[in-house]
Nucleic acid binder design. Structure first.
Lengths: 188, 188
DNA sequence: CGCCGAGTTGAACTGAATCAAGAAACGTGG
DNA sequence: CCACGTTTCTTGATTCAGTTCAACTCGGCG
C-alpha cells in the first residue's frame, strides 16, 4: 500500500489525514490470468491501482480484437471514459497475467473529491497525465510509419515489448501480426 | 464575456465571487488571419477562450506541416502540454481567420486554482473533457479507414469541413491532400 | 503425445503515397 | 477592380507499405 502513497506524494505531498481518508476506501481485489476485469456494456465503477500484473484495454470484435492500451504494476487505470460519463464502456479490460489491485469505487472517489482538499487537485493532475499520454500517442499515429511506431514503443515502453504477445502489440500500433513479424525480422 | 460564464456554469454552477475573481484575470487579445498565436519552442503561457475565429494546431515541417487539431468559437484552447509541463511547445498555434480571444496567464490560473474552491474542480473537468476527445480520436485513427475517418469527421464536426482548407483536413485525418481530394470525389 | 493458439513466411492484392502537371481560387499591388 | 503570382485543389501514372489469404513451424498445455 505504501507504493500508492508514494505515487500520490510524488504528485503532491499529502497530509496524513487526507491519506487516511483516502486509503480507508481502498479495497483489495485479485484476478487470475486472462480474467475480464470489465466487459463492454458495463459501467466502469472502479479506479484501480495495480499492485501486481498487467491489464489490457481492447474492443472485442469477431474478426480480431482492437487492443489500444496496457497498464502495468505501479500504475492507476480505469475505463476512464465510462467511469467519468457513467455510460456503458465500449471496451473490455483484461488481466494478461495474475493481477492484484487496490480499487476505489466511483462514489468513494466523489466523496474524496468533496471531503479532502487534495482530491480535485489529484484528480486534475492524474487527468493531465492521461491527457499528455494520449497526445503523444495521437502524434505517433499521425506522423510515424508502422516501423517507426514499433521502434518508438520499444524506446518509450520496453516493458510492453518484453511482456506482451506480438498480436496485441501489433494491434496497438495499428497493423496486422504478420506485418509486425516482418518488421521485427527486418530490424533485428 | 457572458459566453465564458455560461461555459463554466454548464460544467458546474459558479459562485459570483469565484466568477468575479476569475473574470478579473481575463485579458482580451486580437489576432489577424494567419497570425501565429504561439510558435514551436516557446513556452505556452496562456489558456485562451475563443470569442471569435478558428485556431489551428500544427507541427511545422519543411515538407508539409502536420495539422492535428482545431479550436472554434466558444471553445477553450492552449498548447496544453507545454502549458502544463512548462516546457517549450513542440507545435505552433495559428489563427485561420481573424480571431478574438480572452486570455488567462499560467500564473493567474495557478492563483485561481489556489484561491477559488471551484478552480481545481473546473481544471479537472476541463481536462477530463480533453481526455475524452483524445480517446475518441485515438480509436478513430486505429480502427477507421481514411474514408471512414473523413465521413466520421463530417458527422462529428461539420464546421471543420465547411470552414477549413482541404490540405489541413487531410493532414488532420492522416492522409495527403491528393488522397482526400479523391475520397471527396468518390463519395459526393 | 497430440492439439491449438501464436508466430513466421510467401504470394497476390490494394489503399494510399509519391511524382508530376494542369486548373481553380485567392490575395495583393497597381 | 483587374491582372498577376502564389497557393490550393484536382487528376493521372507509378510505386510502395501494409493487408489478405494460405501454408507451415514452434511451444505450451491437457
Amino acid at each position: 500500500m505504501e507504493n500508492i502513497r508514494h505515487f500520490f506524494d510524488r504528485l503532491q505531498p499529502q497530509s496524513d489525514e487526507d491519506w487516511q481518508f483516502f486509503s480507508s476506501k481502498l479495497v483489495k481485489k485479485e484476478f487470475p490470468k486472462k480474467a475480464l476485469l470489465l466487459e463492454k456494456g458495463q459501467i466502469e465503477n472502479h479506479l484501480s491501482f495495480i499492485k501486481k500484473g498487467i491489464v489490457r484495454f481492447y474492443i472485442p470484435e469477431e474478426e480480431q480484437d482492437l487492443t489500444f492500451g496496457f497498464a502495468f504494476e505501479g500504475e492507476f487505470f480505469s475505463a476512464y471514459d465510462s467511469f467519468l460519463t457513467r455510460l456503458p464502456s465500449t471496451y473490455n479490460l483484461q488481466a494478461l497475467s495474475e493481477t492484484h489491485l487496490w480499487q476505489l469505487t466511483y462514489d468513494d472517489l466523489q466523496e474524496i473529491y468533496q471531503q479532502t482538499g487534495a482530491g480535485n487537485l489529484l484528480g486534475r493532475q492524474a487527468c493531465e497525465g492521461l491527457f499528455l499520454k494520449k497526445q503523444k500517442r495521437e502524434l505517433a499515429l499521425l506522423q510515424l510509419s508502422a516501423e517507426e511506431r514499433y521502434v518508438n514503443l520499444f524506446r518509450e515502453r520496453p516493458e510492453v515489448i518484453r511482456q506482451i504477445p506480438l498480436m496485441y502489440i501489433a494491434s496497438y500500433i495499428g497493423i496486422t501480426p504478420q506485418a509486425l513479424s516482418r518488421i521485427r525480422k527486418r530490424i533485428s
